[in-house]
């Protein structure tokens, strides 16, 4: 297929074919095809792994990477989000990688920019590259998606990882079960095309993949869970309840982990865990996405340039 999209804002917007194309692209050996391109990383929320992953991915492809220090930037001086991006675009940025605490912040803005935009996590909305690296990891282990039972455990309500995973997995033909206490699973989730379970033992039965979400520790203060200890007891993944899943069940976690809360160390470091592979695959997926968004654009620009010359 020919990649046409300028931006990657979410998995909900893209087709099965596009997802598969990105996964195929991720297998290619990196070459410095983005020399002369400028990538800006704008992280309005703290991040270590996603930030570093994008940074390394862009550099391996030969692009120049600029991290924009938000804390000292004009954003703090009240500049609007769109103005910030337009200003950076005027300096020659070709692609923005943006993480922001607000759901959907990029959707009205991206069409107003020439530059490409990758959503590196927006509020509780989407985190498309995380989902893609999860899919890539699942594919490497299982070789397919159709018919797989994928259980996502934890704070679904606030999770952009969960949402991006759900839209993509359903499109790829997997069955998805969401599991957590009812305060952390939106009551409308049953209308998403997934199964909902409030009982981890039941949810795990027959699972091919378990994706364990990070529990934000502040949820306790918001009266969403009574205590971390209770959460760990009822919804923490450990060797005992993992044994209820299929023997070759794959364990994923987007990180960073709260060991002993949502996942036991035994499972996190165990033979079924693919957590470090996920991190490795993250770089490959981000290179694939950067390459697709930027090289398709440079082709477009070139052809436009040729057209202009031909007319002249």
């Amino acid at each position: 297929m020919i990649w046409k999209r300028k931006d990657l804002l979410g998995i909900e917007d893209i087709t099965q074919e596009e997802i598969e194309h990105i996964l195929a692209e991720a297998q290619k050996t990196p070459e410095p095809v983005l020399v002369g391109k400028s990538v800006a990383l704008l992280f309005f929320e703290p991040s270590t792994r996603t930030h570093t992953s994008f940074d390394l991915a862009a550099k391996r492809l030969g692009a120049t990477v600029t991290g924009v220090p938000i804390a000292q930037s004009s954003v703090q001086k009240g500049e609007s989000f769109l103005d910030t991006l337009k200003t950076l675009e005027a300096m020659g940025v070709n692609l923005f990688v943006v993480r922001h605490g607000e759901s959907g912040i990029l959707h009205p803005v991206a069409p107003q920019l020439q530059a490409s935009v990758i959503n590196a996590g927006d509020g509780a909305h989407e985190h498309p590259t995380q989902a893609l690296l999860d899919f890539y990891t699942i594919l490497q282990h299982k070789g397919k998606f159709k018919g797989l039972k994928v259980v996502i455990v934890g704070d679904i309500l606030h999770s952009r990882v969960a949402r991006s995973n759900v839209w993509g997995l359903l499109r790829l033909g997997a069955q998805v079960t969401l599991c957590g206490p009812a305060t952390l699973v939106p009551k409308e989730a049953s209308e998403w095309g997934v199964e909902v379970s409030y009982n981890l033992e039941k949810a795990l039965q027959g699972a091919d993949v378990i994706n364990v979400l990070r529990l934000q520790l502040e949820r306790q203060k918001e009266s969403l869970i009574p205590s971390l200890a209770e959460y760990a007891k009822l919804y923490g993944l450990d060797a005992q309840n993992l044994s209820l899943a299929k023997p070759d069940c794959l364990v994923l976690h987007p990180g960073p982990m709260n060991r002993g809360v949502e996942i036991s160390s035994e499972v996190a470091d165990g033979s079924q865990s693919a957590i470090l592979e996920q991190v490795k695959n993250g770089v490959a997926i981000r290179m694939a996405v950067l390459r697709l968004l930027l090289s398709s654009r440079s082709k477009n620009e070139e052809s436009r340039g040729r057209l202009k010359k031909a007319k002249a």
């Binding site: 909900e12 759901s103 959907g104 927006d122 509020g123 509780a124 909305h125 989407e126 606030h158 952009r160 949402r163 939106p186 009551k187 409308e188 989730a189 209308e191 998403w192």
Partner: peptide
């Protein structure tokens, strides 16, 4: 609050 907000990840 409803299925639309739940899908969008908006409170």
């Amino acid at each position: 609050e409803g299925v639309v907000s739940s899908r969008m990840g908006v409170r």
